[in-house]
Structure formats: structure tokens, C-alpha cells
Amino acid sequence: MSTATTNSNGRARAGSHTVVAIVEDKPGVLMRVASLFRRRGFNIESLTVGHSEEKGLSRMTILVDGEGAPIEQVEKQLYKLIDVVKVSDLSNEEMIPRELALIKVRANNVNRHELLDIANVFRADVVDIATSSLILQVVGDETKIDGLIKMLEPYGIRELSRTGRIAMVRGAKTTTVHEREPEKIREIHERAGRRVEGRELPFSSD
């Protein structure tokens, strides 16, 4: 699975790219993308799919090993797929890469406290606890998760599940197809009976 590919400020290391593809939410689209990568010999380190902010569009975050293929070709080949609407390479942006992991680790009365201390340091949540094990949930970039895993290994990791990377660019810039117009947002607020003034929409609070 994914290896550590970022340094502390979230920029990708040379060789690895974070590509975001906005795709039509249609059957077979994942296979089209996966099949394209296989066919062209591009290496996927991780691939994460989920809904985007727009109905009918999914967002794929693909971590590509850019040493196997020029990233420009990856983007262009993705664009050739009819179901792919937009492709962005976030690697040269200030971005926030995140991954979620669930880790089931052996625990007993003696070491449970140590484990909780470690979890605390990594800001991991305990989501399940039993007499001989506990499940930690941690969110962060790959380095952080790798770090936690390393700390937990001596206790015995019984099961590990990681999501693969999702990412978003910092600041106002987006990788969406088109943003909702302020007009629409105003309507939503008005329908909810909230008073709207100025153009700084939407508000975080009223």
C-alpha cells in the first residue's frame, strides 16, 4: 500500500503525484480509470473515490508513481476518457493530503494505558475497546499514520485498514468543475429565513 510520500508541509516528494480526477458517477468508470492505468503502464499507489460537491460527479484521488510515466501523459490519457470531466495535478500546489486508518491492536490491562498515551500523541481516537484489543482511528498524512503504526507494532497489530489519500488545495483555489454561484447560495440562505448582506458568502455563523 501507500508509502510515505510527503514531507511535513504536505508537498509531494519528487516521483509521486497526487492527481484529482472529477468523473461522471456512472457504472464502470472506476474500471475505465483502473484499466487505463494498467494498459499504459502507470503505477497506482493508492486510489480513493467518493462523491464530490456536485451531484452526479465523483472525485477520484489517485496517487501516481510518476517515475513510471510522465505525469503529463497520465493527465492527457485520463482526459481521453469520456467520463472524465476534469483532471488536476495537485503536486505543485500547497495541499492538504489526508488519509484515514483503522488499526486494531492487541491490548491488555497492563499496556492499555501506554497505548492510550501513544494514541493521544498522534491525536488518534479510540473507537472500540475490548478486553484484549482496541481499535484506533487516526487521520493524517501518510507519514503520521506510518509513524503511529511503527509505534504500535511492538504491541501487535491484528488488523489494519487504510483509505488511501484524499487531498485538497489550500486557500480559495479549487479543483471543482464549476463552483456554485453566490446567487444560488443566497437563495438557500433566504429560504432558510436568514438575512443576507454583503458578498462574503457563505457565512460560518449567522
Binding site: P27, G28, M31, R32, S35, L36, R39, K80, L81, I82
Partner: peptide
């Protein structure tokens, strides 16, 4: 056949 022809068509439909 849609699976088979993914990589040899510009697009396909089921």
C-alpha cells in the same frame, strides 16, 4: 463485451 472493449474503443455503452 463492454469490459472487453474498454481499452479498444473511444467509449462504450451498456
Amino acid at each position: 463485451i463492454t469490459g472487453i472493449t474498454h481499452s479498444i474503443t473511444k467509449h462504450n455503452y451498456l
